[in-house]
Design a protein around this nucleic acid. Structure first.
Lengths: 197, 197
DNA sequence: GGAACTAATAGACCAGTCGTCTAGTATTGA
DNA sequence: TCAATACTAGACGACTGGTCTATTAGTTCC
């Protein structure tokens, strides 16, 4: 009662190890054996928690998306202008790039193209997560127009989607070139396009 | 003499079938057996033409990049303003989307994230191709500023890279959502940002 | 014709894949 | 206490992956 059921802990361990491995190598490229070895869970247990590898991938993405959106919500709920929040959000992409592999955290970057042709279920989870994220960005744009920190835009939804597209593309270009320049340019372009003053 | 050596024809057949399969499913997800079967080449022959699957991937990308750049060169050498050429280039992304899988042709879209963490050789080929493509886009921006069809920009190289990033991201979003809207928005945003008049 | 050489192929090989199955241990509730 | 459930354990099967060796088919030259 005081703690999570042990069952959930084990399940979470698999999910966590899986996320690390898969965000680095891709979904298809990582075998169950590797994930299980990494998380110290025997093979037999895997199929107790997940009916298939695809179902596992589905759970992994669901988990990831909900984590991600929760973090954005926390950011939005905090103090500061809409502009500050947006900047903080984008800057995090660069920060991740610095620490380990460039844009290595973001599963949309790593799995977007793979999952789209692999599993309808997984595709929908990721697509849904992106849609919600774009909504939140659009909301920030609206808020920024009100508090005067951002330039008003005609169609916040469209602008938010194109903003996200630019960052997604820039992340892939940075991965490909092993160079943060695309991400840095995205940041400066984003600022100069949207910021007042 | 009159014709290519048969050896080269066979090699090309493998490359062609490989490109179709891999641009749809990804590099790792497609086995040699499938490619060979598709191209009607016996399995035992593969290692006569390529020393390894990775070397094959390298050749595949080299082939693809050179095809792609040649097409751009042909477009640039043709008639019309820089603006027309750029528009024709981007519109092709949408046209591909319409016919079969969205943005299914572009190997940068499909393989960018996969290859970046898979093979240094393949990564370099793709990265090099993208760099050259961005150069050509930048050259069009410069030309457009001169012929008056496009708004002059401060840093054509940076603008071209961000332009490509936006389209790359939009293509992935379109793949993910099975909806051309992101690509269409990219087109209208590109036009309204760059076009004079 | 027959030797010498290259071009091309067949099929074996083993590591690795996902998923199943049977057996076993802990934990719970009555 | 005892039985039922929750969970662990890993061997096993059927199959696919890329790779390589041994062999055949084809050409060239004397």
């Amino acid at each position: 009662m005081t703690e999570q059921k042990k069952s959930d802990q084990t399940r979470q361990k698999i999910l966590t190890a899986g996320r690390a491995l898969i965000s680095k190598h891709g979904f298809g490229a990582v075998g169950l054996a590797r994930i299980l070895k990494e998380s110290g869970v025997p093979k037999g247990s895997f199929y107790y928690y997940f009916p298939s590898k695809e179902a596992f991938g589905h759970a992994l993405l669901t988990d990831y998306v909900s984590d991600y959106l929760a973090r954005i919500d926390a950011l939005c709920a905090g103090p500061g202008s809409a502009r500050d929040k947006l900047t903080a959000f984008w800057t995090a992409w660069l920060a991740q790039a610095g620490s380990e592999g460039i844009a290595s955290q973001c599963l949309v970057v790593k799995l977007g193209a793979e999952v789209a042709d692999l599993s309808e279920d997984m595709r929908c989870v990721l697509d849904d997560g992106v849609a919600k994220l774009v909504d939140k960005i659009a909301a920030l744009l609206v808020q920024g127009a009100k508090d005067g920190s951002l330039i008003p835009v005609d169609d916040p939804q469209a602008t938010a989607q194109m903003l996200y597209a630019k960052w997604l593309g820039a992340a892939i270009l940075s991965k490909l070139s092993r160079d943060e320049t695309p991400l840095r340019r995205a940041l400066s372009e984003t600022n100069s396009t949207l910021s007042t003053s």
